[in-house]
């Protein structure tokens, strides 16, 4: 589903190589986790895949369902089925959450040449999905992420994911700033979306999120490369022993 080959990326503004040849394939129906210490390039990978400005791809490729991602604008990637759950969701004052969600859903539908969702239908679907994430009507009415707690922001990300029904979901440090209960709620939301036709790339520092969202494959990233790939046991190894020995092994 997602196929990344030898992806090399530097910052546009300075001569600093962040990704130094990433190879990664995420199959439909699978959950891949990427773990790694700060500064290893995990978040950069998520930004480059979703089309954020400020990065220059110097080599390699990234394809989603056979389409060249790197050639598309951010909104085209979203319409093609890519979703990034942000580590720091942005506050948009003055724009109602519901308006935003509907604009997003219908923008994507329009881009794919599908019929737009009417407001009655939209309302029905959004209420149903919001309920399972414990997002109340008040939160749907409020401006996007404004005055939301850390947990509410992350739940709101998952609601967007549920509404947009992407093919590939990237979760960037979704566990950061969450207490145990909030994390469980978010994880339940993600698990509900696990599906044979959908792939996940879960980026995290810690193993604890992976207790709730069980990965099929775990990758360790260091210094812009994936240095080790294994099963869920690799996450436990990191939890118990840290990254240092893995990095030494690689060196």
């Amino acid at each position: 589903m997602l196929e990344i080959k030898n992806l090399q990326v530097k910052l546009e503004e300075e001569d600093k190589q962040i990704l130094k040849g990433v190879d990664l394939t995420v199959e439909a129906g699978k959950v891949h986790a990427i773990m790694g210490p700060n500064g290893s390039g995990k978040s950069t990978l998520s930004y480059v895949l979703s089309g954020k400005d400020g990065y220059e791809v110097t080599d390699g490729s990234a394809e989603l369902l056979g389409e060249d991602l790197l050639d598309m604008d951010a909104e085209e990637r979203a319409a093609a089925g890519l979703f990034l759950a942000f580590q720091y969701p942005v506050e948009i004052p003055g724009v109602g959450n519901m308006t935003f969600l509907r604009t997003a859903v219908n923008s994507q539908r329009k881009a794919r040449g599908e019929e737009e969702m009417n407001s009655t239908e939209f309302l029905k679907v959004v209420r149903e999905k919001a309920k399972s994430l414990k997002i109340d009507a008040e939160m749907l009415k409020r401006p996007v992420n404004v005055g939301f707690s850390g947990g509410e922001k992350k739940r709101n990300e998952i609601l967007q994911m549920a509404m947009l029904e992407p093919k590939l979901c990237i979760l960037d440090e979704t566990d950061s700033g969450l207490d145990v209960d909030a994390m469980k709620l978010v994880a339940d939301g993600v698990n509900a979306l696990r599906d044979e036709g959908r792939g996940f790339l879960v980026i995290t520092h810690y193993q604890r999120l992976l207790d709730h969202i069980k990965p099929d494959v775990v990758h360790i990233m260091h210094d812009g490369r994936i240095i080790k790939t294994g099963g869920p046991e690799l996450a436990l190894e990191v939890e118990n022993e840290g990254y240092a020995h893995l990095i030494e092994e690689e060196a």
Partner: peptide, 24 residues
């Protein structure tokens, strides 16, 4: 970027952010 990553075309995203700017 946040809005575009959700599929909003640049023009619509810019307009929403303009509305957000005057909201206060």
């Amino acid at each position: 970027f946040y809005l575009r990553a959700r599929g909003l075309p640049r023009g619509i995203a810019e307009d929403l952010l303009t509305i957000a700017f005057i909201a206060e």
